[in-house]
Structure formats: C-alpha cells, structure tokens
Design a protein around this nucleic acid. Structure first.
Length: 190
DNA sequence: GTGGGGATTTACT
DNA sequence: GTAAATCCCCACA
C-alpha cells in the first residue's frame, strides 16, 4: 500500500489524470473528482510558480501531497494538489467534482445551486467543501483516496489562462455531467 | 506606496 | 451574451 506522497511524486502530467475519479473529503463533504488541470512548475508560463517562490505560492515548492489554495477575482478560492518531486512546484488544479456524500452541507453552502452544479467549477467545489485560506498547505493524507482508473479520459486546453492556454493539460472524465462547461473538446484517450 | 490583472461565478438584459 | 462583484498578489518605483 503505497503512501499518498509516493503516488503524487511523479511528473505532474502523469499524476493529473490519475486524480480523476479520486475521492476527496473535506468539511464533511466527499466528492469524486471529474476534471483537473496540470501546472508544471517554473517552466510553465501559466503557473503561479513561473516567477519563482513568493509568499503566496510557497506551498507549491514544498513536498507533494499537500493542498495549495489561492484567492482570485476578489471572492473565490481554488485548490490544487501539489505533485512532483519537492521543489518542482508542480500542482494539479481541481476544476470540478461530483458530490457523493455530505449533500446537505454542500447545499447549505451553495444554496441556489442544483446538485449537479454544487462542485462543478474550481471555486464552486471549494465553496461546497469549505476550503479556503486555512486549508493552504493542508496535508492530504486521509483526505484524498486515489481510485483505479475507470472510463474514458479526455484532454484539451486549459481554461481561463492568458498564457500557454494552448497546452492540452486539462483532463476530464469523458461525458461526465459534472465537468465544467467551456469544454473546448480536443481528443480522447483510452 | 501604487497600479494592473487575475487558474471565476452569478445575475441580468 | 455581457458585466459586475471585489480583494489579494506581485512587479516596479
């Protein structure tokens, strides 16, 4: 039974698709991850780590298996799983998920949302799971459970970036209804 | 110390 | 479809 850290220590492009289908628990809510995006360290112009270590992104430079949360657009939190060897500053943005337990809590936190949209989007998911500033650096042991691969995985360009948006580093479970819209579908694998 | 921009969401027309 | 909400971070002076 490998440690979570070992499972996440590989290159981010290998780890990212393996997070699809994984169980993630926080704040009394359990989700199944359906959509992710890879950010590959200093070489990636779209990454927060591109300009080197700063107070905001220091968690990315730490060991894999921790949560990197950041605040954006004046009101939203988003969360990433830090991957790769320590110091590589790679991470996987959790873009969408399906709530599979703790529905009542998730509905309370997102009152005007349909069940399908509770965690359909990176900031929506954090809201539904009560993830924010205090979860930055959280050790994911006991929170994240990888599952054996099931179903088809699609890949395509990342969303919302100005820089290097063309890299096909977004991965999602093909045809899953909780994948966020804005899907510029590209190609399917497996 | 200041200013520009952001890995988004929601409501409104 | 378009716009408003809203604040933190970072680069530069």
């Amino acid at each position: 039974m490998p440690d979570l850290t070992d499972l996440l220590a590989g290159p981010v492009l290998e780890v990212a698709p393996r997070l699809l289908g994984a169980r993630f628990e926080h704040g009394g809510v359990v989700v199944r991850i359906t959509e992710v995006e890879a950010y590959d360290g200093p070489d990636d112009p779209g990454s927060h780590a591109h300009r080197g270590l700063t107070p905001r992104n220091e968690v990315m430079f730490g060991p894999p298996g921790h949560l990197y949360t950041y605040f954006t657009y004046g009101m939203h939190w988003c969360s990433n799983v830090v991957t790769g060897p320590e110091g590589r500053a790679s991470a996987v943005l959790l873009r969408a998920a399906e709530v599979v337990d703790g529905l009542d809590l998730a509905r309370e936190r997102r009152p005007r949302s349909s069940d399908r949209d509770l965690a359909r989007g990176p900031a929506r998911m954090c809201r539904a799971m009560a993830i924010g500033r205090e979860q930055n650096g959280l050790d994911l042991s006991g929170h994240l459970g990888l599952e054996p691969p099931t179903g088809k995985v699609s890949t395509g360009p990342r969303v919302g970036l100005r820089l290097a948006a063309d890299r096909p580093w977004r991965f999602w479970l093909t045809d899953d209804p909780t994948v966020s819209r804005y899907v510029p579908a590209k190609r399917t694998t497996r």
